[in-house]
């Protein structure tokens, strides 16, 4: 059969695949997951960029029938699309935790997630523990972190400190983490990161009706939030998934109807129809996971939880 090439970029690897012309998004996505040995597939998606806008490959539609860049090979990024409510309870496999760790670390370093200088230093110390193992002053000589990107540029510029001084600060924390295995260090990183206000939120600029108030809409694991344009930290308004009856769009307009019929219906405009489609897609996916968490675990999840527990105990013994 005729094929086309795709390049899939994960947080730490690049892979090339030959795909059959008739393949749906799901065929490619499943192949990537199998190649990675990833079973917690529901958090992830294949992202591409078209005309400067980020979009996710639809699983149920043929790959070549989607509005993807016509290049050879076609490039996709394999990324977390949805985030858990609690990393320590929901991320079971080590590979899942590792991919989340790498993605969240990048978001913090790229300043997509704001993090205070104190917390960035603590996070950096866990990243160093994950990479280098236990601190050994005989081996980890001054300058050993010189090649690592550990702190956001904003933090580095904020203080008059030399690279050496930052290294000392991070190393002081790093030395405290002795005995923590790589997977534990990464999980500790995520446990701190998940409490940051901007963690796991997808922001979209929106306008409200005639007065053209510029706002931001945020979609995350818990619900939909509305922010002032200059404050991404604390929403002015929040709709938890369990308090929403219906979400609908027509062209650029999007409507959120609360469950409480007396409560005000929230209407706004996004920049493009395409953005509304993406917002609804994210709402459906997040709501689906929200419901799944509140149901009894499937047999597959129960097995994975048992396996993860065994694996952890075995590792602890080894360590």
């Amino acid at each position: 059969p005729k094929t086309f090439k795709v390049k899939v970029i994960t947080m730490d690897a690049e892979m090339e695949f030959s795909c059959e012309m008739k393949w749906k998004g799901k065929d490619l996505f499943d192949l990537v997951c199998r190649t990675l040995g990833l079973r917690e597939t529901w958090f992830f998606g294949l992202q591409y960029t078209i005309k400067g806008v980020r979009a996710w490959l639809k699983l149920e539609k043929k790959v070549l029938e989607q509005e993807i860049p016509k290049e050879d090979p076609i490039k996709f990024c394999f990324l977390a699309k949805f985030y858990p409510e609690k990393v320590e309870e929901e991320l079971l496999q080590e590979i899942t935790q590792h991919l989340f760790f790498l993605q969240v670390k990048k978001q913090i370093l790229d300043e997509e997630i704001y993090c205070s200088p104190e917390v960035t230093v603590l996070l950096a110390s866990y990243a160093v523990q994950a990479k280098y193992g236990d601190y050994d002053p005989n081996f980890h000589k001054p300058g050993f972190l010189a090649q690592d990107e550990l702190l956001p540029q904003r933090v580095l510029k904020q203080y008059q400190m030399t690279v050496h001084m930052w290294e000392e600060k991070i190393t002081a924390w790093y030395a405290e983490h002795r005995g923590i295995a790589r997977d534990e260090a990464e999980m500790n990183y995520l446990k701190i990161a998940q409490d940051l206000a901007m963690y796991g939120v997808n922001y979209f600029p929106i306008e409200q009706n005639k007065n053209h108030t510029d706002l931001l809409l945020g979609v995350d694991a818990k619900g939909i939030h509305v922010y002032s344009i200059n404050n991404r930290f604390s929403p002015n308004k929040s709709f938890e998934w369990s308090a929403i009856r219906n979400i609908s769009y027509s062209e650029k307009e999007l409507t959120i109807k609360p469950l409480d019929k007396k409560a005000e219906v929230f209407k706004f405009f996004s920049s493009q129809l395409k953005v509304n489609k993406l917002i609804l897609q994210l709402c459906i996916g997040n709501h689906d996971l929200f419901m799944k968490r509140r149901r009894v675990d499937s047999i597959e999840i129960q097995q994975m939880k048992a396996q993860a527990k065994e694996e952890k105990a075995r590792k602890k013994m080894e360590h």
Binding site: R245, I247, S248, L273, H287, R295
Partner: peptide, 22 residues
Amino acid sequence: YFARKANHKGSYSLVDALKSKV
């Protein structure tokens, strides 16, 4: 519970989604 009426319209009922999964 997800309905696309035309290419420019879409609707998702969270209530129906919840009922169908119970």
